[in-house]
Simulated assay, not measured.
Amino acid sequence: MLFEKKISFNQNDFDSVVAACIAGNNQAQRYMYQKYFGYAKSICLRYTSCLEESEEVLNEGFLKVFNNLKNYDPSYPFKVWLRTIMVNTAISYYRKHKKHIEDRTALEDVPELRLEEDIVSRITADEVLKLIQRLKPLYKNVFLLHAVDGYNHREIADMLQLNEATVRSQYIRARNQLQELIRQYYPYSYPGSWSVKTSERSYA
């Protein structure tokens, strides 16, 4: 058919938005992009080292979203599905460019510092994320994947194409380095104890 009618959608009916996007309705795709732009970009910014990289990951991630919407299960929370795609896209970008030297020191070579459990509650989430951005790229990615996005070490090893012992060592190194950064930039947060409890894997 030369002039095929575009399927309509209702912004208050998300299923109709998804259906319209799958059917190629540009307005529906634009609406979905704008609705989730801020959320998706915040994820991409976490996993990249600059704005330019985050925008590349964001654009590629949304392309994957639209190309795979037909496989989306409506019974699954859309933001979790979207986040998974954005995280995987960011990790693929990291692996592809290989800009950074990976530290593959074994776990037993890394002494683990005791992290005190209250420190994060004494500084803001934005302050914590800014410090995480100061970590080495591999440390940062491993820490974010485990502590923020809730992946286990085996899953992270598969995503980063590393062995599990390496992932564990990088996570410990990231924790140690983050603790030192908190001590350096926010000395008032001591003494106390802390743990990171920011996993989003259980979103409803």
Rank of each mutant, 00 (worst) to 15 (best):
E4G: 04
K5G: 04
F9I: 00
F9K: 00
N10W: 11
D13Q: 10
F14P: 00
D15F: 14
S16V: 02
A20Y: 06
I22N: 05
A23N: 11
G24V: 03
G24P: 00
A28T: 00
Q29R: 13
Y31S: 00
Q34M: 10
K35P: 04
Y36T: 02
Y36K: 01
F37D: 13
F37Y: 15
G38D: 13
Y39F: 12
K41W: 12
I43P: 02
L45D: 05
R46E: 14
T48H: 09
E56P: 10
E56V: 15
V57L: 04
V57E: 00
V57S: 03
G61L: 05
L63M: 09
V65D: 01
F66G: 01
F66E: 00
N67T: 08
K70P: 00
N71P: 10
N71L: 12
Y72A: 06
D73H: 05
P74T: 08
S75N: 05
Y76V: 07
V80A: 08
I85D: 00
I85H: 02
V87C: 10
V87T: 03
A90S: 04
Y93E: 03
Y93V: 04
Y94Q: 05
R95M: 11
H97P: 05
K99H: 12
H100K: 03
D103F: 08
T105S: 09
E108L: 10
V110D: 10
P111A: 11
P111C: 10
L113F: 12
R114H: 14
E116I: 07
E117D: 13
E117G: 14
D118F: 06
V120D: 08
R122G: 01
A125N: 05
D126Q: 11
E127H: 08
Q133V: 05
R134Q: 14
L135S: 01
K136P: 11
L138M: 06
Y139K: 09
K140I: 03
V142R: 02
H146Q: 09
V148G: 04
V148I: 11
D149E: 09
Y151I: 07
Y151Q: 01
Y151G: 02
H153M: 08
R154S: 11
A157H: 00
D158A: 14
L160T: 00
Q161S: 07
L162G: 02
E164Y: 08
T166I: 09
V167R: 00
S169E: 07
S169P: 03
Y171M: 06
Y171L: 08
R173D: 12
R175I: 13
R175P: 15
R175Y: 14
Q177Y: 15
Q179T: 13
E180Q: 15
R183H: 12
Q184I: 01
Y186E: 12
P187K: 12
G192V: 06
K197D: 07
T198F: 13
T198K: 14
E200V: 15
R201I: 13
R201T: 11
S202Y: 07
Y203T: 13
